[in-house]
Computed example of a mutant assay.
Amino acid sequence: MAQRYLLPSPGVVTAIEGAERFADHPDLAYLEIRAKLGDRIGPVDSHPARAGVVITTGETREVAMALAEYVVERILIATDANMIR
């Protein structure tokens, strides 16, 4: 089992894409995206400040870790830092 977090750059969320492609993946135990379009993302200073979480399973720890990182890398949470002002 492995757990990784979604940590987009600070700014206002302008797009969220990619999570749907993992909906039926047998080794994706949990996927939560907390960020919503228009949310202001700041520096991560606490657990609730994370934009989301991915938990995966696999035959080995290394396989689960690789899948978790793969999923996180393919979920886009785009932000615009210029919109924070």
Score class of each variant (00 low, 15 high):
1 M>Q: 01
1 M>R: 01
1 M>P: 08
2 A>G: 01
2 A>P: 03
4 R>W: 06
6 L>V: 04
6 L>W: 05
6 L>Y: 06
7 L>M: 13
7 L>P: 02
8 P>E: 04
8 P>R: 09
9 S>D: 12
9 S>H: 14
10 P>W: 09
10 P>Q: 10
10 P>N: 05
11 G>L: 10
11 G>H: 10
11 G>P: 04
11 G>R: 05
12 V>E: 08
12 V>R: 09
13 V>A: 08
15 A>C: 02
16 I>N: 08
16 I>W: 13
16 I>K: 11
16 I>S: 09
17 E>Q: 10
18 G>L: 02
18 G>N: 01
19 A>G: 15
20 E>Q: 09
20 E>F: 01
21 R>L: 01
23 A>N: 05
25 H>Y: 10
25 H>P: 03
25 H>D: 08
26 P>N: 15
26 P>Q: 09
27 D>W: 04
28 L>S: 03
28 L>F: 00
28 L>H: 01
29 A>D: 14
30 Y>G: 02
31 L>P: 01
31 L>G: 00
31 L>E: 00
32 E>K: 15
32 E>Y: 09
33 I>D: 04
34 R>W: 05
34 R>D: 01
34 R>V: 10
36 K>Y: 02
36 K>C: 04
37 L>N: 03
37 L>D: 06
38 G>I: 00
38 G>T: 01
38 G>A: 02
39 D>V: 02
39 D>F: 01
40 R>L: 07
41 I>V: 14
41 I>E: 08
42 G>P: 04
43 P>I: 11
44 V>R: 07
44 V>S: 07
47 H>K: 03
47 H>W: 06
48 P>Q: 11
48 P>V: 11
49 A>V: 04
49 A>Q: 09
49 A>L: 05
51 A>V: 04
52 G>Q: 03
53 V>Q: 09
53 V>M: 13
53 V>L: 10
54 V>Y: 00
55 I>D: 01
57 T>D: 14
57 T>R: 12
57 T>P: 00
58 G>T: 13
58 G>K: 08
58 G>N: 10
59 E>K: 10
59 E>A: 14
59 E>S: 10
60 T>P: 09
60 T>F: 06
60 T>A: 11
60 T>Y: 11
61 R>N: 13
61 R>G: 11
61 R>K: 13
61 R>A: 12
61 R>C: 02
61 R>E: 12
61 R>D: 15
62 E>Y: 06
62 E>S: 13
62 E>L: 10
63 V>C: 02
63 V>F: 05
63 V>L: 14
64 A>Y: 09
64 A>N: 02
64 A>K: 00
64 A>L: 08
65 M>R: 10
65 M>T: 15
65 M>A: 13
65 M>D: 15
66 A>T: 15
67 L>G: 09
69 E>Q: 11
69 E>H: 13
69 E>T: 12
70 Y>A: 08
70 Y>I: 03
70 Y>F: 12
71 V>A: 05
71 V>N: 00
71 V>Y: 05
73 E>T: 06
74 R>H: 15
74 R>I: 03
74 R>K: 13
74 R>A: 00
74 R>V: 04
75 I>W: 09
75 I>P: 03
75 I>E: 04
76 L>S: 14
77 I>P: 03
77 I>R: 13
78 A>V: 06
78 A>E: 14
79 T>D: 12
80 D>W: 08
80 D>L: 12
80 D>H: 05
80 D>A: 11
81 A>F: 09
82 N>E: 13
82 N>T: 15
83 M>F: 01
83 M>Q: 12
84 I>P: 00
84 I>G: 05
